[in-house]
Design a protein around this nucleic acid. Sequence first.
DNA 1: AAGTGGTCTAGACCACTGA
DNA 2: CAGTGGTCTAGACCACTTG
Lengths: 232, 232
Amino acid sequence: MAGRQVTWKNVRERIHVAILDGVYAPGDKLPRDLDIAEDLNCARTTVQRAMRDLADSGIVERRRKGGTRVRPDPVTRATLDIPDTRKEVEAKCATYGYQLIRRSTELAPRGVVARFGLAGPKQMLRIKALHMADNRPYTFEDRWVSTDTVPEILEVDLATQSANEWLIHNRPYSRFDLRFYADAADTDTAELLDTRVGNALLVIERTTWIGNSPITTLKATTCPGYQLRAGV
Amino acid sequence: MAGRQVTWKNVRERIHVAILDGVYAPGDKLPRDLDIAEDLNCARTTVQRAMRDLADSGIVERRRKGGTRVRPDPVTRATLDIPDTRKEVEAKCATYGYQLIRRSTELAPRGVVARFGLAGPKQMLRIKALHMADNRPYTFEDRWVSTDTVPEILEVDLATQSANEWLIHNRPYSRFDLRFYADAADTDTAELLDTRVGNALLVIERTTWIGNSPITTLKATTCPGYQLRAGV
DNA sequence: AAGTGGTCTAGACCACTGA
DNA sequence: CAGTGGTCTAGACCACTTG
């Protein structure tokens, strides 16, 4: 008699539709898991799974004892994957190119030290490099690597392999901070990215740590027209 | 003798650390769930939960019959919450302000029609508005609303309430597309956002649908210095 | 065809937190 | 302190996919 088994995706869809249809408005309380489970004739675990997914998507809020509510202040929640630049370029069916511009050991400026959350100034490895797609500039990176945390980086031939690729495969991180903003191209950047000074460019800043030890911080200035995309 | 019960977070942490320590390198195969469960003396479900979390974070890849592997091309996966502008401003302990600049019904240009994935041109509601924080310009929005999908919007007093707030509370969406890029301020935008022409500004574009019906598309030009943040 | 992850169930207990 | 979500278990079966 009963058709197929009720799956958690069925349940999620059902609840989601009810919310979209306005059966439950923002701020409204939903029935407790157990009641829904009995209603739909499935195990509570199944409802739990569905509800957790809705909560992860930012659609509902769940609290012990407080129950489940439709999120009163809906947010647009997007998952953004920032791939390795080589992969990103190759995914566009373009040829990846990499060029080391400068490599030096310098005293990291205050801004960099602050980004890492360090107390005092530090000597670090600084790398400037250009990533290319089909022989055209793609992004320009200005990177600092903590040689306290990653001393081996000093032995790596960064003319052949980008610091990012080496780090990704040799020094995973446990925590990161990401920022996006717009910036005007300065003289050097404009020349490297083959654009005019003052042009608006998207900048991606990423800082990574392993535990509390800083690994690297990176400012990637993208070429004109670069877009980040996400969606569902 | 056994201490506390093994939790899925314990398991996740344990596997994660093993990966971070290089016990398993990118591309390596991990033991099957059942073996790990026996190893750690817990149920397979618990391992499953931990593994799913690692997979969701982009750290491992799982395939039936194929097993679990450390992701060979690590990505930085971030979750971005784009809140309602009012909430965003208020979260900064600033006073939110809103100003309707223009409201009109126009034939949507090709670009807008294309964003929605529509076939032909359409008459739509266009709204230009300024969001403010502490009486200073915060973002400028240029929005199109599909009056086919949301005819009620025509009855709303958009001078009092922002279209976004009304839509969020009355017309939930099931799908969206998000884009970020940098753009130079044109004359109008520069004046509205109180900056100079040509200044680099971060632009957020969002298009939403309910099912396959377009709801709204929005280009939000942010004030100078605006940053998007994410991280773990 | 067989191996591995994905999911469902039923029941128990835990942990938060609102009344 | 009592109600609700969060998690664990043990076992079963399903669904994909690869060797």
